[in-house]
Computed example of a mutant assay.
Amino acid sequence: MLGVLQGFATIGAVVGLGFLLAHWRILDISAQNLLSRLAFYVASPALLIVVMSRTRVEAIFSANLVASFASVVITVAIYLAVARWRWRPPLGESVIGSLCAAYVNAGNLGLPIALYVLGDISLMAPTLLMQLLVLTPVAMAVLDGEARGHRPTLGTSLVRVVRNPITAGALIGLLASFVRVPTPVLQPIELVGNMAVPAMLIAFGISLRRGPRPGTGGSWSHVATMVSLKLVVQPLAAVSVGYLAVGLRGHALFAAAVTAALPTAQNVFTYANRYNRALFLARDAIFASTVLSIPVILLIAFLLGRP
Rank of each mutant, 00 (worst) to 15 (best):
P90Q: 08
L91Y: 11
L91N: 01
L91W: 14
G92D: 03
G92H: 01
E93K: 09
E93H: 15
S94E: 15
V95E: 05
V95G: 00
V95C: 03
I96F: 11
G97C: 12
S98E: 08
S98K: 11
L99H: 04
C100W: 05
C100H: 12
A102V: 05
Y103I: 06
V104Q: 10
V104I: 12
V104K: 00
N105Y: 11
A106Q: 03
A106Y: 14
A106I: 12
G107E: 00
G107F: 00
G107R: 00
L109S: 04
G110L: 10
L111E: 05
L111G: 00
L111C: 02
P112K: 01
P112C: 12
I113L: 10
A114N: 07
L115F: 03
L115M: 15
L115G: 04
Y116Q: 09
V117G: 09
V117Q: 08
V117A: 10
V117D: 08
G119A: 10
G119R: 07
D120I: 15
D120K: 06
I121F: 04
S122E: 07
S122Q: 15
S122N: 08
S122D: 09
L123T: 09
M124W: 02
A125E: 01
P126I: 06
P126H: 02
T127S: 15
L128C: 13
L128A: 15
L129C: 05
Q131L: 06
Q131F: 04
Q131I: 05
Q131E: 09
L132W: 11
L133D: 07
L133C: 13
L135H: 08
L135V: 15
P137A: 08
P137R: 06
A139K: 06
A139Y: 00
M140F: 12
M140Q: 13
M140N: 05
A141G: 02
A141V: 15
V142N: 00
L143G: 10
D144E: 14
D144V: 11
D144I: 14
G145I: 02
G145T: 05
G145A: 11
G145C: 02
E146A: 12
E146C: 13
A147R: 12
R151C: 12
P152E: 13
T153Y: 03
T153R: 10
L154Y: 09
T156F: 14
T156C: 05
S157D: 00
S157W: 04
S157A: 10
L158G: 02
R160K: 10
R160V: 00
R160E: 07
N164Y: 07
N164E: 06
N164P: 01
P165Y: 08
I166H: 01
T167K: 01
T167L: 04
